[in-house]
């Protein structure tokens, strides 16, 4: 398709959508009776409910079903796929890496975000300082991965370096290092990318929360001679605890589903695959739909308790 054709297709799709919805609402509006009420309700709710039903609910149930079937979905295999995930060596590496990601990323991103929020609070250049940390959040994870792949770029020690990380090693007198190839540390260098992206999110939410701590509490503590680290430890952190939990859980959820970084930076090679990436490989590369489905269901099971907890905390936060 040419550029023009694509934009025409886009225009057609939007116009079609607006016309259908507009016509539906117009017709429903014309019928003035009890039947009209029913028609209007249907017109408002049905499109969204149908899309969710066919697009989310049915596929979800189907995937659970497929996870108990074999690679080509021709026979039932019971819990073999799940058994495979927890016994196969490669799959265990995937689980180990996923655990690293979910433990390290939320904690590191939250700590950095919190410390930075406290440090720049009420500083002269606060807005600018915050924007610096927050900008990575608006980038695609593909773009972020490219930015860091460039930092990690490897050349032999005697050559001119392109990557900043290896240049720093060289300046310090060390040999250069294959950041993305050396197991198992390469996983942690990928995690750095996610921390880099997520710290801005943590910082923004926590900063808003810090600013809402009542003045009199801080002032009272100050009169009692509390300051510096003790103020941070005994006043700031307890006061923003609910926000801290929301931030930690939110980043955990995002991290569990991490896919783009692994695919762009290493392609899941060199022992860096994680659950969400392995799902993609098994489903769309190896065409092992059974195992892929089981991995997706496992992801679902891991995410669910965190999401439920997260939503409950968030509602508490909003109710305050």
């Amino acid at each position: 398709m040419s550029t023009g054709e694509k934009l025409v297709q886009m225009g057609i799709a939007v116009a079609l959508f607006v016309a259908v919805v507009g016509l539906m609402l117009f017709l429903a509006d014309r019928v003035k009776s009890r039947r009209g009420e029913v028609l209007q309700t249907t017109a408002f709710v049905l499109p969204a409910v149908l899309m969710i039903g066919f697009g989310l609910l049915y596929p979800m149930l189907r995937t659970v079903y497929e996870s108990f079937r074999n690679a080509g979905s021709t026979a039932f295999v019971g819990t073999d796929n799940y058994h495979h995930i927890f016994t196969d060596h490669d799959q265990l590496v995937v689980l180990r890496n996923t655990a690293f990601w979910v433990i390290v990323t939320p904690i590191a991103a939250t700590v950095i975000g919190l410390v930075y929020a406290v440090l720049v609070d009420r500083a002269k250049f606060e807005k600018f300082a915050k924007a610096l940390i927050f900008l990575p959040m608006s980038l695609s994870l593909v773009g972020a991965s490219l930015i860091w792949k460039f930092v990690y770029d490897y050349k032999a020690t005697e050559n001119d370096q392109i990557g900043l990380a290896n240049q720093i090693l060289k300046w310090l007198g060390f040999d250069t290092y294959r950041f993305l190839l050396t197991e198992p540390w390469n996983t942690f260098f990928l995690i750095v990318i996610m921390i880099w992206v997520q710290a801005g999110f943590a910082m923004t939410v926590l900063s808003a929360s810090i600013k809402s701590i009542p003045d009199d509490i801080v002032e009272a503590a100050r009169l009692d001679g509390v300051s510096g680290m003790r103020m941070f430890r005994f006043i700031t952190v307890p006061m923003i605890r609910p926000s801290l939990i929301v931030v930690l859980t939110t980043i955990s959820i995002t991290t569990l589903k991490v896919f783009d970084i692994v695919r762009t930076a290493t392609g899941g090679n060199f022992g860096t695959s994680v659950l969400a990436y392995e799902f993609y490989v098994q489903s769309f590369r190896s065409f092992n739909t059974g195992l892929g489905a089981a991995l997706a269901v496992l992801l679902f099971l891991l995410v669910t308790p965190i999401v439920v907890y997260n939503i409950r905390q968030m509602r508490k936060l909003e109710a305050r």
Binding site: A48, V49, I52, F54, G55, L56, L57, Y58, P59, M60, R62, T63, E66, L256, K257, A276, F279, Y280, S283, T289, G292, A293, L295, A296, V297, L299, F300, V303, T304, V307, V308, I311
Partner: peptide
């Protein structure tokens, strides 16, 4: 029910949706 569907990771829906 709609609210609860937020939990579903999109990975869980992909293959059946593609089949549809």
């Amino acid at each position: 029910a709609v609210f609860a569907m937020q939990i579903v990771p999109i990975q869980v829906t992909m293959i059946p949706l593609l089949t549809l």
